[in-house]
Simulated scan of single mutants.
Amino acid sequence: MPAPRVSLIIPTQRRLDGLATAARSTFAQAGVDPAVLELVVVDNDQVPSAQALIQTLAAEAPFPVVYVHEPEPGVANARNAAMEKAQGAFIAFLDDDEEAPAGWLAALLAAQAKYDADVVFGPVRGRAPAGVGKHRAYLEWFFSRVGDGPREGVIDHYYGCGDSLIRRASLPDPKAPFSAIRNHIGGEDDLLFGGMQAKGARFAWAPDAWVWEDPVPSRLTLDYTIARAFAYGQGPSAHCAISSPPDRLGVARWMAIGVAQAGVYGLMAGLQWLVRSPRFAFTLDRAARGLGKTLWWGPFKIHFYGLRAPT
């Protein structure tokens, strides 16, 4: 049997309902021959908690399903473990809280071929359940990726790994491209794509390659999203700091921008909270991102990934 042309990868950790939805959405892809596909699911739990589900799902699948157990916690560890087993010349990433419409993969592949892209990104549409009322508009926006909107084509920037198609030959390491230094804080995809961009990689945007994102209920709170916004804000400063050689001027510039953003948007958020403005959460988010640009080093790092299950 020839190697698959596209490996679909879903990293997961103790999220079986979302995983089942994401996996089944890959089975229903239209406009792509199933004979060129495989699905690789990497289980980043200490115990192989997703194995039984994947065995069940494999019986439904129109193409091979590969289960990988990576017990060492960390988002980069999980992605690299899947990459090691994946055989495709192209890698399509879907998160375990996402659901892909039937035309998703075909749209990614069409954009890749049209623009000869090394990486193609698509939009993400956040979807909160009916019971979420407070801050609903903000929460759905937070978990969305509007990106470049309806304009298809080559772009000079990059987005996250979820809902992306990567040409394997363009990766700096085709088997383990994600850096372990981002295992616990995330941003391993930003680090990879930033390095690829510096070496001339071509990125494209495919507006028709959109997916739903259904965050777990525990993430649909301001406590989670504002902490995550703070961590996102740390990205530009941290990236400059770990460059080789370190970009100290870049760090200083981002920190100065962060101080201004935190001050201005923090004051605005306080005023909006007093008058119960519906824009309060959006403005607080911007203040948190500014503060993250300023407080980006060691003791202020927040770990979102790679946590072991409680014992």
Results as ranks from 00 to 15, higher is better:
residue 48 P to M: 12
residue 98 E to H: 14
residue 26 T to C: 14
residue 94 L to V: 11
residue 120 V to A: 02
residue 122 G to E: 08
residue 122 G to I: 08
residue 118 D to V: 07
residue 192 L to R: 03
residue 33 D to V: 02
residue 12 T to K: 03
residue 82 A to G: 12
residue 154 V to E: 14
residue 181 I to L: 08
residue 249 L to H: 08
residue 49 S to M: 11
residue 185 I to T: 15
residue 62 P to Y: 01
residue 122 G to A: 13
residue 247 D to W: 03
residue 107 A to G: 07
residue 204 A to V: 07
residue 267 L to Y: 01
residue 204 A to Y: 06
residue 310 P to M: 08
residue 137 A to C: 06
residue 63 F to E: 02
residue 267 L to E: 02
residue 43 D to R: 03
residue 211 V to D: 01
residue 36 V to S: 10
residue 135 H to L: 00
residue 244 S to W: 03
residue 235 G to Y: 03
residue 64 P to Y: 05
residue 54 I to V: 15
residue 155 I to L: 13
residue 51 Q to H: 15
residue 18 G to W: 10
residue 51 Q to K: 14
residue 261 Q to R: 11
residue 47 V to L: 15
residue 239 H to T: 13
residue 288 A to Q: 00
residue 25 S to A: 09
residue 92 A to H: 15
residue 47 V to K: 13
residue 202 R to V: 15
residue 210 W to Y: 15
residue 261 Q to L: 11
residue 119 V to T: 06
residue 210 W to L: 09
residue 88 G to D: 07
residue 197 Q to C: 04
residue 68 V to S: 02
residue 148 D to F: 10
residue 120 V to M: 04
residue 235 G to P: 01
residue 16 L to T: 04
residue 217 P to G: 09
residue 152 E to F: 12
residue 107 A to F: 08
residue 118 D to G: 08
residue 151 R to F: 11
residue 35 A to H: 04
residue 71 P to Y: 10
residue 167 R to L: 14
residue 28 A to H: 05
residue 238 A to F: 11
residue 250 G to Y: 03
residue 128 A to R: 01
residue 62 P to W: 01
residue 121 F to M: 03
residue 135 H to C: 00
residue 84 E to N: 07
residue 185 I to G: 09
residue 69 H to K: 04
residue 64 P to I: 05
residue 12 T to H: 08
residue 289 R to L: 01
residue 177 P to M: 12
residue 231 A to D: 08
residue 202 R to M: 08
residue 61 A to M: 05
residue 52 A to I: 08
residue 2 P to D: 13
residue 223 D to Y: 05
residue 162 G to T: 10
residue 63 F to T: 04
residue 113 A to E: 14
residue 217 P to T: 09
residue 175 K to D: 13
residue 63 F to N: 04
residue 265 Y to T: 01
residue 11 P to G: 08
residue 121 F to Q: 01
residue 263 G to T: 05
residue 281 A to G: 01
residue 101 P to H: 13
residue 164 S to M: 04
residue 99 E to M: 13
residue 111 A to F: 04
residue 24 R to W: 06
residue 275 V to P: 01
residue 112 Q to I: 09
residue 265 Y to P: 00
residue 171 L to S: 05
residue 134 K to C: 04
residue 85 K to P: 00
residue 129 P to S: 12
residue 21 T to K: 13
residue 226 I to R: 00
residue 225 T to V: 02
residue 219 R to Y: 11
residue 279 R to W: 15
residue 27 F to T: 03
residue 41 V to I: 15
residue 221 T to Q: 05
residue 146 V to T: 14
residue 247 D to V: 06
residue 290 G to Y: 00
residue 107 A to C: 11
residue 66 V to Q: 10
